[in-house]
């Protein structure tokens, strides 16, 4: 089961560039939450703060509080522990090219020393089924490399890899922006199914996508969160003029 995320006055910098300014947000458990906004508005930086990936860049800095469930991730835990509980799917599919499909999915568990072969087989199968890839790859799990799949399959493989460690939260940073329409709709169907079990935060450029998959949507602009509300409300009756301008295509 997923857990909720509570963000209190989060600030982030790249060097001297103040990319996130005073973000307050409550992300509900077991729902999909979409973050929209023009390029460079800070939405990717925001999700990278939720699993402390932001600070892997040596010039990056973060202040504020992020609570995932009842864990204050910047105070009570090391990045390594948090990333085991918060899975992430990136914009471009990044499977491990030198590993088989099976090893790709099992990578997170093997990394942490999980070696029960039978349990591993089950987890790999379940994760691939959950990411709707099982039927396409079940015959050559250990024969084919992760890089031999198509782009859409690779992205679903990356989702399976993230699901295999059974995270409480799944962060998706524009997971479909590098994919064709058919693969995109498969990913969206997948998000729809997964959100009953996981808390999903999805960054997207595509407003229709946000409307299709998310219960709640946040609009980011210039490092600030302008509006956060039910998706339905954001797209039909936004309370902020800037949100309205953005969703009606007047800028961005």
């Amino acid at each position: 089961m997923g857990v909720g995320i509570e963000v209190v006055s989060l600030n982030a910098w790249y060097g001297t560039n103040h990319t996130l300014q005073d973000i307050h947000l409550n992300i509900p458990a077991n729902h999909a939450t979409a973050l929209i906004g023009p390029s460079g508005c800070g939405k990717s930086t925001f999700v990278r703060c939720l699993n402390r990936m932001h600070e892997t860049n040596p010039i990056a800095r973060v202040t504020g509080t992020v609570r995932i469930g009842d864990l204050d991730i910047y105070k009570d835990a090391k990045p390594v522990e948090i990333r085991r509980r918060v899975g992430m799917v990136f914009q471009r599919p990044n499977p491990f090219p030198t590993m088989s499909i099976y090893d790709n999915v099992a990578a997170g568990l093997k990394l942490n020393g999980y070696s029960n072969r039978r349990a591993l087989d089950e987890i790999v199968e379940r994760s691939l089924k959950n990411s709707a890839l099982w039927d396409e790859v079940k015959d050559d799990l250990k024969k084919k490399s992760g890089a031999s799949l198509s782009g859409g399959q690779q992205q679903r493989l990356c989702i399976a890899r993230a699901l295999a460690v059974d995270p409480e939260v799944l962060l998706m940073d524009e997971p479909a922006s590098a994919l064709d329409p058919v693969s995109t709709s498969k990913i969206e169907d997948l998000i729809f199914q997964l959100k009953s079990q996981y808390t999903i935060v999805i960054v997207t450029h595509n407003m229709q996508q946000a409307a299709r998959v998310a219960e709640k949507t946040g609009f980011f602009l210039n490092g600030r969160m302008v509006e956060f509300d039910l998706t339905h409300k954001i797209f039909t009756n936004p309370s902020d003029k800037r949100t309205e301008d953005y969703i009606t295509g007047r800028f961005g």
């Binding site: 990136f90 030198t98 990394l111 993230a162």
Partner: peptide
């Protein structure tokens, strides 16, 4: 992106270097 993929799975720095860099 390979380094990030490994880090996002909860790898330490050494594990990231081993699995994300040296292996590739």
């Amino acid at each position: 992106s390979q380094r990030e993929a490994v880090l996002a799975l909860g790898a330490t720095r050494w594990e990231m270097i081993r699995m994300g860099v040296l292996r590739n």
